[in-house]
């Protein structure tokens, strides 16, 4: 299956950066059944890592009960124009994806 990049939007409000991310991902719990009654295997994002100018500012650990195509927003205390933001994830199957932006 194809892994889609993380979509990120960042907005500076003074020195605080408000970062919003969307991660296209099925987030299967492993308890659902398909039309044939077979269990759909679990497939969900486990770890989301957020980098601000290459230093880690936030890590999210998720279980399968985060909604499909997860939305995640967080805030960085001291950011300025030109700073880079990178968000990446790893799921339970070892797949990974990321996205990055430069604040403006």
């Amino acid at each position: 299956m194809t892994v889609k990049p993380v979509k990120i939007r960042g907005r500076l409000k003074g020195v605080i950066a408000n970062i919003k991310c969307l991660m296209p991902h099925p987030m299967e719990t492993g308890t659902r059944r398909d039309d044939a009654g077979e269990l759909i295997p679990a497939h969900y994002i486990r770890t989301v890592t957020c980098l601000h100018n290459d230093s880690e500012v936030m890590t999210a650990h998720w279980g399968p009960s985060v909604s499909k195509d997860p939305y995640f927003s967080f805030k960085i205390k001291t950011a300025s124009v030109g700073d880079s933001i990178k968000v990446s994830w790893v799921d339970n199957l070892g797949e990974t994806s990321s996205g990055d932006i430069v604040l403006k």
Partner: peptide, 25 residues
């Protein structure tokens, strides 16, 4: 009431604000 009650854990770094949003089941 969820089968596995824990939805999400966030490690908040020194330079981030204690303010997170997501969507859960």
């Amino acid at each position: 009431e969820n089968p596995n009650p824990l939805s999400a854990v966030f490690d908040i770094g020194e330079s981030s604000v204690a303010d997170v949003s997501t969507r859960i089941k």
